[in-house]
Design a protein around this nucleic acid. Structure first.
Length: 263
DNA sequence: AGGACTGTTCCGCG
DNA sequence: GCGCGGAACAGTCC
């Protein structure tokens, strides 16, 4: 599920569940989610959670004893409680709260690392700056994509340029900026970079608002989603100009756009 | 039955 | 060496 907004919501929720509390136990129900190369998970027991934060699509839980880094990939999510099946990992806190990683497709990755290990691991990924909340203006966007030669839509998915944008946000962003997904990056002019810069903040703000809830609440998992103008809406009329939304495949991924008003 | 899927990495090819 | 496309990962849901 998650792109930047969903991971942001999970981080906020998890912060409320776990921040400041002491880890009583960790239970690895599905050992295949644990990425090798870290430390023995039990070293975290007895440690107090000092921070829960998001970087790009990664969720980081830090304690003085060591860190947990979760990447939800396609279907992973952190939830409060356990017991519906599909839990791969649970974290029990000293007040009785249980936080679980639920992941049907089992593509999620859990890392348990020593003190400071999460940041050191993030540093190896060469992630670009986050797309939200502090992306820059037209010049910033143009410079982040300097050297890219292919179409803009797949380029937006490159986490080394700008981090946090996934397949849905890329289509939605280009619709808001009225730019066709096939446009080569070098062909974009400053006016268009400006429209991207202006669109990203409100887009992510709105997705977060639409999906936030007391429990994790992705809007309408699977299927089309009212929060999105083009994603999953092949054939329906564009909200802006009425022309039909089209689905095309780029780089093996679906792109949705309006040929009437995206140029 | 077959394809598609909000992510990422790896491999082969040009 | 780099960039691109496709495959792979694994499970569910049309």
């Amino acid at each position: 599920m998650p792109e930047l907004p969903e991971v942001e919501i999970m981080a906020r929720l998890t912060r409320g569940w776990a921040a400041g509390k002491v880890i009583r136990s960790l239970d690895l129900l599905d050992p295949s989610v644990l990425v090798a190369g870290g430390v023995e998970p039990d070293v975290l027991v007895g440690g107090r959670v000092t921070s829960v934060r998001r970087r790009a699509k990664h969720l980081i839980i830090e304690t003085p004893q060591g860190d947990i880094a979760v990447h939800s990939r396609m279907t992973g999510k952190l939830v409060s409680g356990s017991g519906t099946g599909r839990e791969r990992f649970t974290l029990a806190l000293d007040d009785g709260t249980v936080v679980s990683l639920r992941d049907t497709r089992r593509l999620a990755e859990l890392r348990v690392l020593g003190p400071g290990g999460a940041q050191r691991w993030l540093d190896t990924l060469n992630l670009g700056p986050d797309a939200w909340p502090d992306a820059g203006g037209a010049r910033w966007w143009r410079e982040r994509f300097a050297g890219a030669r292919g179409p803009i839509k797949p380029a937006l998915l490159d986490q080394r340029r700008v981090a946090g944008i996934g397949n849905i946000l890329a289509s939605e962003l280009l619709w808001r900026a009225r730019i066709a997904p096939e446009r080569p990056v070098p062909a974009l002019v400053d006016r268009e970079w400006q429209r991207i810069a202006d669109a990203i903040g409100p887009l992510i703000d709105e997705v977060i608002a639409a999906e936030s809830g007391a429990e994790i609440a992705y809007v309408n998992e699977g299927g089309s989603n009212q929060a999105f103008a083009v994603y999953g809406r092949d054939g329906s009329p564009c909200r802006r100009c009425g022309a039909p939304i089209r689905r095309r495949v780029q780089g093996g991924r679906s792109s949705y756009c309006c040929d009437g008003c995206q140029r």
